[in-house]
């Protein structure tokens, strides 16, 4: 059981999209003998727990969490993102899936040179890279128990029925207001940032999730959603084409193994930060952190 709990935690953690996670909260330490889901947002963790209750295993919960996070913290996660999953299955198999995004073929040296200030281009359709999250979920589904329609249900419900805007959501909205009001005013609350405590719905995302849940992941890369994206890109001077989407593959890789004070570790390989984590932990092994308090300068700096 311990092993499956740790794989659950690792899977959920690693399936998150890669942008910075802003949420920092203080909460009591919780324990469970039956399984536990952690996520950057309580509603996403609840989505994972709901899937466990329906008979899903860690990977099922991780998929549900990933989809739910895309709804409740769209500034940090989502179908348009990328990631890396590293999981240890109950039978001991180690799995690593690399679903980082790829640049479209038209994002070549010549076009990038002509595009102007790349700091600004990144906020235009030209800045879009082929998303890896749907393909990563597709690969993870091969190891899951429950169908995508069940795993996507909590995310669809959140997007359709609404949820309360958090302080973090609101702050990111404030910080990014200028760019949001210029590029996607419809995302805002009548032109203004969403306030903490407000009720947020995302029917367009719910519709997209419903299409994926009904038609499968392939619709994102080869079907209806690929056609929609291709049309949007052509109309708005973007570079991604359906051919880029069709060519995308999530990659199965070998995780890297290491140890820390007798614990076996399985981490993602390069270019994700796994090797760095192992190196850091191996250095830390030489220090007795247990005798230092959490705020001991030696503990912090080591």
């Amino acid at each position: 059981m311990n092993r499956s709990i740790s794989s659950l935690i690792i899977a959920v953690f690693c399936l998150l999209a890669t942008q910075a996670i802003h949420a920092v909260t203080v909460a009591p330490i919780l324990q469970s003998k039956e399984g536990m889901v952690t996520a950057a947002h309580p509603l996403a963790a609840a989505a994972g727990a709901e899937i466990l209750e329906k008979g899903g295993k860690a990977l099922d919960a991780a998929i549900a969490v990933s989809l739910a996070l895309g709804v409740v913290e769209p500034y940090a996660s989502g179908l348009g993102g990328e990631g890396y999953m590293d999981a240890v299955m109950a039978d001991g198999r180690e799995v690593a899936i690399d679903f980082r995004s790829t640049a479209p073929a038209m994002a070549n040296y010549k076009n990038l040179n002509k595009a102007g200030d790349l700091g600004k281009v990144r906020y235009t359709p030209k800045g879009y890279c082929v998303a890896g999250v749907p393909a990563g979920i597709g690969k993870a589904l091969e190891l899951a128990n429950l169908p995508l329609s069940v795993l996507a249900a909590p995310a669809i419900r959140l997007a359709e029925e609404s949820f309360e805007v958090t302080e973090t959501f609101s702050k990111v909205n404030m910080d990014r207001w200028e760019i949001l009001s210029e590029k996607t005013p419809g995302f805002l609350d009548d032109g203004m940032p969403w306030a903490a405590g407000a009720t947020f719905r995302n029917p367009a995302l719910a519709k997209t999730l419903r299409i994926i849940a009904k038609k499968g992941i392939d619709t994102f890369y080869k079907g209806e959603l690929a056609n929609n994206l291709d049309r949007f890109m052509r109309k708005n001077d973007g570079w991604t084409r359906k051919s880029d989407l069709k060519a995308y593959r999530a990659l199965s890789k070998e995780p890297i193994n290491g140890s820390y004070r007798g614990y076996d570790l399985s981490v993602p390989g390069s270019p994700v930060g796994g090797p760095r984590i192992l190196a850091t932990l191996n250095i830390l092994e030489h220090f007795n952190l247990a005798i230092m308090s959490w705020d001991d300068p030696l503990a912090i700096h080591r």
Partner: peptide
């Protein structure tokens, strides 16, 4: 003789 209005609109996040 102007009036001065001070506003803080960012909530706790600001």
């Amino acid at each position: 003789g102007m009036k001065v209005l001070v506003m803080h609109i960012g909530g706790k996040g600001r």
